[in-house]
């Protein structure tokens, strides 16, 4: 009978191989092996998370707690960021539009760029830093101090209790944070427009949304769910699979932020391409 080799074993085998080999071509083969094994490990982890999300016994209390942690506790940071982005976009764009005599286009231009791109991406990057690192560090320290193992021996599936609520909460809360950031961005833009002029709020909002169509909003909103999913999944994966020792906690948090930020940009690229092809 063919024996199934656990992924942890394959990982340690690949690690040993890459240390032992000296020949360059063999080294690159070992690196490729290691990369493929790690990739398989990521997909297995995602598979486990999906299986546990849709199986019986969703941890609703833990989900609400995570919603509070991700949503409510990020509000301050997202408020400041949203306001400033709107303000800066307006201040930067105004002189160019004045040159073309198109200053009345300013509100709608800022609104479209905020809704389609700036709001989602900047919020996701801020969340990658804040939420990704906190998930990586928290789960990493739980791994290092054997809390995850303690959970397992208490007949509690750690994927179901720790990972699923975090991933679902981030996938739900990050789109809401993006909407909030967009709203505050437009408010910031109005403030910016009033620095060198006197614009009525109702007029500003009317002009801002005058050019925004439904299809500006929907694809941008859909991609924010993927941002939330990617950020939380990376944070949880890095933390859950942290190595031994306190150093691993820092590594898990750091690599979670780097990988999540990169993936946010890549997801954005794919989302823009797909939207462009479909519309």
């Amino acid at each position: 009978m063919k024996q199934r080799i656990p992924i942890t074993k394959m990982k340690s085998y690949a690690r040993n191989k890459s240390i032992a080999l000296t020949d360059t071509s063999m080294e690159s083969t070992a690196s490729l092996n290691k990369f493929l094994i790690n990739l398989a490990d990521v997909f297995l982890f995602i598979g486990r998370v999906f299986r546990n999300t849709f199986s019986r016994g969703f941890e609703f209390k833990e989900f609400l707690k995570q919603c509070f942690q991700i949503g409510n506790k990020s509000l301050g940071l997202i408020s400041v960021t949203g306001l400033i982005i709107g303000l800066v976009l307006t201040i930067q764009s105004r002189p160019v539009l004045v040159n073309f005599g198109a200053v009345n286009m300013l509100p709608s231009m800022v609104a479209i760029s905020l809704i389609r791109e700036m709001g989602p991406v900047i919020t996701a990057l801020i969340c990658a830093g804040k939420i990704g690192s906190s998930m990586g560090a928290e789960l990493g320290s739980m791994r290092v101090t054997e809390q995850i193992e303690a959970m397992e021996v208490s007949s509690t599936n750690p994927i179901k209790f720790l990972i699923v609520p975090r991933v679902v909460a981030a996938t739900v809360m990050i789109p809401l944070l993006v909407l909030y950031a967009d709203a505050l961005g437009i408010l910031g833009s109005w403030a910016g427009a009033n620095i060198k002029g006197d614009v009525n709020f109702v007029l500003f909002i009317t002009q801002a949304f005058g050019k925004v169509v439904f299809m500006d909003f929907i694809p941008a909103f859909i991609k924010t769910f993927f941002f939330g999913f990617v950020i939380s999944m990376v944070g949880c994966y890095k933390g859950f699979n942290a190595g031994r020792g306190t150093e691993s906690v820092g590594i898990a948090a750091n690599s979670a932020v780097v990988m999540a930020s990169l993936l946010v940009i890549l997801v954005d690229l794919f989302a823009v391409q797909i939207t462009d092809l479909l519309l």
Partner: peptide, 27 residues
């Protein structure tokens, strides 16, 4: 089977985010 076994970890492995009461109630 795990329900019949108690495991005391070297580090104690208490859940940092929970009080002593919540730690005890968890299992």
């Amino acid at each position: 089977t795990r329900k019949k076994i108690g495991f005391l970890f070297q580090s104690g492995a208490l859940y940092d985010s929970m009080t002593v009461k919540e730690n005890l109630e968890f299992p």
